[in-house]
Design a protein around this nucleic acid. Structure first.
Ligand SMILES: [Zn+2]
Ligand SMILES: [Zn+2]
Ligand SMILES: [Zn+2]
Ligand SMILES: [Zn+2]
Lengths: 138, 138
DNA sequence: ATACGATCTCTAGTGACTAGAGGTTCAAGA
DNA sequence: TCTTGAACCTCTAGTCACTAGAGATCGTAT
């Protein structure tokens, strides 16, 4: 049995965040002391570790709620779990693709001016004003 | 002189977003008709196009405010503009780096299960529960 | 003159937290 | 046993960059 602060230390999840997870239904409400303070057990720790790891991998709270729901039913098909993971992978890939285009464009823009001039002739500002100077869509 | 709807069509920025930009001080308040409707001119169109392009490149509202402020002073040094662009580039690169690590990890996790089994034995769920199965930090 | 789409302001909601106020509880040392 | 002080409690509000909706007014074409 440990306090919310102890749980926080063990999982690297901040205390208000733990309370937020509980409020949003992701984490079961734990037992309380007579003085109304939360007390967690090993199951709570395991659950929060799962949530933290999934969040670190970019899953949304909603997706994690679906995943933990599945975890509670060991005999159910895991097709939904793989679907959620694939969707997350697709999402990450789409983000990378978009960011890669931005990186190339920003490289060009940054290289175009050394910052020694005056705003009137600045290639950075001119590039931002005119998408036609861009080499790709973004 | 054109209406907010016309400006929206020309810039692909939604009407409520234009009003939001005005409210947050990014866009000057335009003239109004007698009936209190906004009427924009070429300068307003140019300004919003600049904002839109910068947003598309991922600059924050705050950064854009600084950039448009610089634009208004043609004789000032453009060092600040290049700094902002470099910071944005660094930010994008950091995001790509993080997402790339996530992509690799999610690929492994996704490949580990075809979704034909049952949640109890699912590699996807097991991977989410245990960071030690991960091959890198993320 | 009438119809009707466009515009107005204002409030509230999104996701995933974070910060702060003001009050209570726990645990350790004297 | 008493006292301190860190940790805990709830509740509200703020973050970012919008988005959605209500209810009222305006502009323009027929
Ligand atoms: Zn420059
Ligand atoms: Zn561009
Ligand atoms: Zn599986
Ligand atoms: Zn991991």
């Amino acid at each position: 049995m440990f306090s919310i602060g102890e749980l926080s230390r063990r999982t690297n999840v901040k205390v208000p965040t733990i309370r937020y997870y509980e409020e949003s239904g992701l984490l079961d409400a734990p037992e309380r002391t007579e003085g109304n303070q939360r007390r967690y057990d090993a199951a709570g720790l395991e659950r929060l570790s799962f949530i933290k790891h999934a969040r670190d991998l970019g899953f949304s709270i909603e997706a994690i709620a679906a995943l933990t729901e599945l975890q509670g039913h060991p005999d159910r098909s895991c097709a939904e779990a793989t679907d959620i993971a694939s969707a997350q992978l697709a999402d990450v890939r789409a983000k990378i693709k978009r960011l890669y285009a931005l990186e190339k464009e920003l490289e060009r823009i940054s290289k175009g001016c050394d910052g020694e001039g005056v705003t009137e002739n600045c290639y950075v500002l001119a590039s931002l004003a005119d998408h036609d100077l861009c080499e790709r869509e973004h």
